[in-house]
Computed example of a mutant assay.
Amino acid sequence: MTANIQPVILCGGGGTRLWPRSRRAKPKPFLPLLGERTLFQQAIDRVADPALFTAPIVVAGEVHVPLVREQGGKALSIIAEPTGRNTAPAIALAAHRAPEGSVLLICPSDHHIADEAAFRSAAEAAAGLAQQGYLVSFGIEAISPHTGYGYLRRGEELPGGYALEAFVEKPDLETAETFLADGRYSWNGGIFAFGRERFLEELATHRPEMARLCAEAVAGGEGDGQVFRPAEAPFAQIDGDSVDYAVMENTAKAAMVPVSMGWSDIGNWDALREARGGESTGEHELRDCTNVMVDSDGPRVSVVGMEDVIVVVDGDDILVTNARGAQGVGKLEGVSRP
């Protein structure tokens, strides 16, 4: 069993497509959307086995540090980003702060994973490949021709996984259907594993300016025990990019571990409805309805004779959408309000 896996939990993004429940001051990761524990707390719970994982490093924006402390406890090591620069710089900060020789396991803080045993098995397999010098993506089992996810195409078999033959951008429906029928394609869920030193080497090769500025930000940073704050000036100069574009699509040693673990990125209200099995919350009454979900924090909601509708009540804000409209919620004017 690999015991030096260093979880890195990323708390970026505003979860705007889950407005009005998700707000700038308290976005999606810090909400109990599935069960009593928040998505962030569930992410911590998944890497709590000390036989396999070390204590997590959490990378979050300065404004959300109090929430991380409140929900995560004192065992966490927190890096407070002075400004958001996407996932590649965030991971670089964590790599500089991680122990030498560790395998970094990059975990978004706002995903749902139903089968935690499958997650841990995949983490072990990915760590094994990472120790051989591979940069590893989790290949989430594609159970539908989803057009909202990027895809991974697997190549030759490796011990515990496969060579990653290609990253594929979000497809149209017809293309996604061919991917599903092909059988070699998985969803790209944004979960990665790689050796600390190997990642920093690859970043320096493919994004040298980003690598230099991240190193400067860490070298000039300050900590108060639990929270480390990188130097703001060099970090603000970084031209942000995702780890997919900055490193994973450029490395010659990309690999993937296929996994079926009941995964969802809870990317919008339709995805949350699916993860909940259509179950409503709060005071509600549904009559002659099909595929209708209510999520209310107070007022009683009654729906009669409707199909494929989601109703959300949060304080004075009310959202009504269907599955097709759920992806566009983040573009509403109300989302910009606190």
Rank of each mutant, 00 (worst) to 15 (best):
N86W: 09
E141L: 08
L52V: 11
G133A: 07
S102R: 02
G133Q: 02
A25T: 15
E141V: 06
I106V: 14
S144M: 14
Q42E: 15
G101S: 12
A90W: 01
A92E: 07
S109A: 13
A88C: 11
A142H: 11
R24L: 14
L31W: 02
P82F: 00
A122I: 03
L105G: 09
K26D: 13
C107E: 13
L34N: 00
V58F: 13
R23L: 12
A98W: 06
A51S: 12
F119E: 04
A125T: 09
H64R: 13
P27R: 13
P27A: 15
G35S: 11
G13S: 07
I140Y: 06
P108E: 12
G101W: 08
S137H: 04
A88T: 01
I78W: 07
L105S: 11
L129F: 08
S77P: 02
A80P: 09
L52K: 12
L129N: 01
S102K: 10
F30H: 05
F53P: 02
G12T: 00
D49M: 02
S121D: 14
G13C: 08
F138N: 05
I140F: 04
A125N: 07
P66A: 05
A92I: 09
G35I: 06
G128R: 10
K26M: 15
R37C: 11
Y134N: 05
E124K: 10
A123C: 14
I106Q: 00
E100D: 13
S144F: 14
R46V: 02
G84L: 04
A75H: 15
F30T: 06
G61Q: 11
G128F: 06
F138T: 01
A51V: 04
A55P: 03
L18A: 07
P50S: 12
R46D: 08
G139K: 01
A90G: 10
L93T: 04
T54W: 00
R46K: 10
E81W: 02
E116Y: 01
E81G: 00
S144N: 14
A92T: 10
S22C: 09
G61H: 10
T54Y: 00
A142F: 06
H111D: 13
Q71T: 05
K26F: 08
A75L: 10
K28P: 00
V47F: 05
A94E: 08
A117N: 11
E116S: 15
A95I: 10
L31R: 14
L76M: 11
L31K: 09
G84K: 05
F53V: 11
I57L: 15
E124Y: 11
F53C: 09
V47W: 02
W19T: 03
G35Q: 10
L93Q: 01
I113T: 04
R97N: 07
G139V: 05
H111L: 00
V136G: 07
P50T: 11
P108M: 09
S144D: 15
R97C: 12
R21K: 05
A130S: 13
S137N: 10
A130I: 08
W19I: 03
F30L: 13
L67W: 10
P56H: 05
G148I: 14
